[in-house]
Amino acid sequence: MIGESLLDNEPVIRLSAFIGIFAVMALLELAAPRRPLYVSKKLRWFSNLGIVVLNTALARVILPMAPVAFAFVAQEHGWGVFNIVAWNGWVELVLVVVLMDFFIWLQHVMVHAIPLLWRLHRMHHTDIDYDVTTGARFHPIEILLSFAIKFAVIALLGASPVAVLAFEIILNATSMFNHANVRLPLGLDAVLRWLVVTPDMHRVHHSAVPRECNSNFGFNLPWWDRLFGTYTAQPGAGHEAMTIGLDMFREDHEARLDQMLIQPFKCARGEYAINRRDWD
């Protein structure tokens, strides 16, 4: 009964969390912005939120089930470590969130390292402003790839549906938080970035400087970048003066939704993929 209720209400739970967290971060951006915005917010928000709607619709149509529903399938078939070995429910939930976060971090490094995948992912980086909507700006093909990777991880771990739902909500929440154009007190940021990826920490990843762009890959937990040597504390030019985006797709019309969708098929792959280390 609980499982059926969770499955039936999963879209409502996730949508409610998204709207609530988005509203809070958007209000904080108005109250304490970190940087001025340069592109029309009306254009950017229409395009970035339009991508969210498109990605959600495509995922529901193309994929037979969402990650939470797939976790039920894995549970029914006894797939994965947590379906083989009995664990305390709370311990399992924490381990699933941490391990899935690591695989998402690894996926993020991968889409920077493989030129073909970088073409898909660079749409996330061609936003030349940085605010809460940037956290949802991903190409539909990359979203489908991400779903496939999540399914594989869920099957490997045997993650419970509750743990998967918790991870999805946390990931979406932290993505909106760390992409927000919010000025946090420096002392608070210094403490928080040991526990969660902060806006100042992740903003470095959206720098137009290739070395900075290829650092701070975390969306949720900040530990992986520190452990694997991809952590950059601050942008060289400072947060107010740094250039956001890439050295391509900077014209105003590139912020239109139709132009964003065809970006992977335009222009050269550029110098930002990790294996193009001309910037060493």
Rank of each mutant, 00 (worst) to 15 (best):
L246P: 01
N178A: 08
F102V: 08
G218L: 10
L95Y: 04
N181T: 07
S146I: 00
Q75P: 03
P140L: 04
T232H: 15
L7P: 10
E168A: 01
T56F: 15
Y272M: 04
V196T: 14
V85D: 13
H112P: 06
W118F: 07
F138W: 07
L117M: 12
A86G: 07
N83Q: 15
I84A: 11
N220A: 12
L93Y: 01
A237S: 13
R60C: 06
L54C: 02
W90Q: 05
Y231N: 08
M260C: 10
R14W: 13
L49P: 07
S16D: 13
N88S: 12
F138C: 02
P140Q: 10
F249I: 03
A180N: 03
V97H: 01
V96S: 08
L93W: 07
F46E: 12
L184N: 06
A180I: 01
H205W: 15
D189H: 01
V53Y: 11
R35Y: 04
L186H: 11
L156D: 07
M25G: 00
F72N: 11
S175W: 12
E76A: 14
D247M: 13
E212W: 13
V196P: 06
F177L: 12
G20L: 05
E212G: 00
N275S: 11
P222V: 03
G238D: 07
M201P: 14
C213L: 09
C213E: 15
L261N: 04
A273C: 08
E168I: 02
R14E: 06
K150Y: 08
P185H: 12
L171M: 11
A159D: 12
T198F: 15
L192Y: 12
E240L: 08
F46W: 13
I2C: 00
H202K: 03
A173D: 05
V182W: 11
R14V: 05
N216V: 11
F22I: 01
L95K: 10
F228D: 08
A152N: 04
G135L: 06
M260F: 06
F103T: 08
D129M: 03
V182R: 03
D247P: 03
N9W: 10
A208E: 14
V164S: 04
A268Q: 14
M110Y: 05
T174Q: 11
N181E: 13
G218S: 07
L27F: 09
L261S: 04
F151Q: 01
N220Y: 06
I104S: 09
E142P: 00
I19M: 09
A241N: 11
C267H: 13
N83R: 06
L7T: 10
R44E: 14
P210E: 15
T174W: 05
V209T: 05
N88K: 15
A148E: 09
V98D: 10
I104Y: 15
N172T: 06
H202A: 05
L58A: 00
L6I: 05
G245P: 04
L192T: 05
L221D: 11
R44V: 03
L156A: 12
F82H: 15
R137E: 13
E254C: 03
M248N: 09
E251G: 05
A23R: 00
D129F: 03
P140G: 05
L227R: 06
E251L: 06
T198I: 07
